[in-house]
């Protein structure tokens, strides 16, 4: 598998470390239920999913990848820190 790093271009997945699902963090006062879901409960969709990958052996950027779990198609990859982070 290759991942399209926004800085380095397409690179072998060996250069990356998987860093989990890209979730929106709940507000501090969102309540225990929202926080339990954020910490422990994960969807397992057959379809597009957003996830973080860390380009440890390359530019060291964290990137947010949109990947289809059914087809492995990667439709998007952006810098997790925003465009100015390059």
């Amino acid at each position: 598998m290759r991942l399209p790093c926004p800085i380095c271009g397409p690179r072998d997945s060996r250069e990356f470390i998987y860093r989990g699902t890209a979730l929106d963090r709940p507000a501090p006062d969102a309540g225990t239920e929202a926080w339990e879901e954020y910490l422990h409960l994960r969807d397992n969709p057959a379809g597009p999913i957003r996830e973080f990958w860390y380009h440890h052996a390359g530019c060291t950027a964290w990137i947010e990848v949109t990947r289809n779990t059914a087809t492995h198609e990667i439709s998007d990859a952006v810098l997790a820190g925003g465009e100015g982070a390059a």
Binding site: C8, R11, D12, R14, E15, H56, A57, G58, C59
Partner: peptide, 9 residues
Amino acid sequence: VRTLLGHMT
């Protein structure tokens, strides 16, 4: 480039 050589960065 920054990359891998074997298992080394």
